[in-house]
C-alpha cells in the first residue's frame, strides 16, 4: 500500500538543487526509505524520473526536474518570471515563509509557466511545485495560470498543466479562494476556442486547485499513487471519526470512480502527451 499522504510528505523534502537530502528522518543512514516498499534507495538510483528501482514508487519531482523530463531540451521559454506575491493581509509570517520557499526552491512561486515543445509539438506548459509552500494557490499562482491560458489562446496551441497543490494559500485569505473563480472563468473562454487542455494530476492535488482548473481539462491524467481529492484525508478522518479505506483518494481509486481518463507512469508521460497532441492535430514546430 502506498503510504505517502500530504502530512507525511513534509518528512521527505523535495530533492534537487539546494534542497538537502531526501530523508531527514534517518540522518545517519545513506539514501532514503521508499514509502511504498520500505526498502532503502540511493538517490542516484532514482535517475531522472525519480522512480523506486524496486517497486516503481513515484518520488516527488520539483518543477524544474519535471520540466527536464517533459519539455524538449532547450525549448522552454518561461512566462511571467517577474510576478511576485505580496502580503496584502499583512498576515504574520507570510513574508518569511515566502522568502524561505524562494531560497529553498530557487523558484519565485509555486508554478512555472511558459511555452515549450513536447516531442516537437508546441504547447503552453504549466508545472506546479509541491515544495513551494505546499503548492498553494495565491494571487500569483492564479494569475500565472490565467496568463498561461490566455497565451495559449493567443498562440492557438494546446495547454498542459501539471498540478500539485494543497489548495488555497490561506495567508492571502479570500483573495486566494477567489483564484478558483478567476482560473475557471478564463478556462471557460479557453474551452470555447476549440483548443486542447490536458491536466496531469500529481501527488498531492487537493482543495482549491482540484476543485478548479485541475479537474476541468479535456483529458485528465494522473500519476500512479497520486493523492487526489477535495478535502484532505486528515480532515475527512476527523469528520467521520473512522479510519479511511486502503487506497482512498489515490489515483487508482479516483480512476475507479470515473474521475480520470488514464493513469500514466512517469516514464510514459512524455510519449503519452505527444500522442494526445498528435491526435488533436498538433503541428510540429508550429
Amino acid at each position: 500500500m502506498l503510504k505517502s499522504s500530504f502530512g507525511k510528505q513534509k518528512l521527505i523534502p523535495i530533492p534537487g538543487s539546494g534542497r538537502g537530502p531526501l530523508d531527514k528522518t534517518v540522518p545517519n543512514e545513506p539514501g532514503l526509505k521508499c514509502p511504498s516498499c520500505s526498502r532503502r534507495v540511493m538517490e542516484m538510483e532514482l535517475k531522472e524520473h525519480k522512480l523506486c528501482p524496486h517497486c516503481g514508487h513515484h518520488f516527488p519531482l520539483n518543477a524544474r526536474e519535471r520540466l527536464e523530463i517533459i519539455a524538449d531540451s532547450g525549448s522552454f521559454q518561461e512566462f511571467e518570471v517577474g510576478l511576485r506575491s505580496i502580503n496584502t493581509l499583512e498576515f504574520p509570517g507570510y513574508d518569511e515563509k515566502m522568502t524561505q520557499a524562494i531560497n529553498e526552491t530557487g523558484l519565485s512561486e509555486a508554478i512555472i509557466t511558459g511555452k515549450a515543445t513536447v516531442g516537437g509539438y508546441p504547447c503552453v506548459l504549466g508545472i506546479m511545485d509541491p515544495g513551494f509552500m505546499m503548492g498553494s494557490m495565491g494571487s500569483v499562482v492564479g494569475e500565472k495560470v490565467c496568463r498561461a491560458m490566455e497565451r495559449a489562446i493567443e498562440l492557438k496551441i494546446a495547454l498542459i498543466i501539471f498540478t500539485a497543490s494543497g489548495g488555497a494559500r490561506m495567508q492571502e485569505g479570500m483573495l486566494s479562494l477567489l483564484q478558483m473563480a478567476k482560473t475557471t472563468a478564463v478556462l471557460g473562454r479557453f474551452h470555447q476556442e476549440g483548443l486542447l487542455y490536458i491536466s496531469i494530476i500529481t501527488n498531492p492535488t487537493t482543495g482549491g486547485v482540484s476543485a478548479s482548473f485541475a479537474s476541468l481539462a479535456d483529458i485528465i491524467l494522473a500519476e500512479p499513487g497520486a493523492l487526489i481529492g477535495f478535502a484532505g484525508p486528515r480532515v475527512i478522518k476527523q469528520t467521520i471519526s473512522e479510519t479511511l479505506p486502503a487506497g482512498f483518494q489515490k489515483a487508482e481509486f479516483m480512476l475507479g470512480h470515473g474521475m480520470l481518463d488514464c493513469i500514466v507512469e512517469r516514464g510514459q508521460l512524455k510519449k503519452t502527451l505527444e500522442l494526445f497532441l498528435r491526435l488533436h492535430g498538433g503541428e510540429k514546430n508550429g
Binding site: 485541475a214 478535502a231 475527512i236 469528520t239 470515473g258
Partner: peptide, 20 residues
Amino acid sequence: YPGLGAEERGQAWAIARVLM
C-alpha cells in the same frame, strides 16, 4: 462536506463545473 461518499462521487469535479 468532507466525507467518503463526497470524495468518491467527485466533490472537486462537481464544484469546479459550477465555478466554470
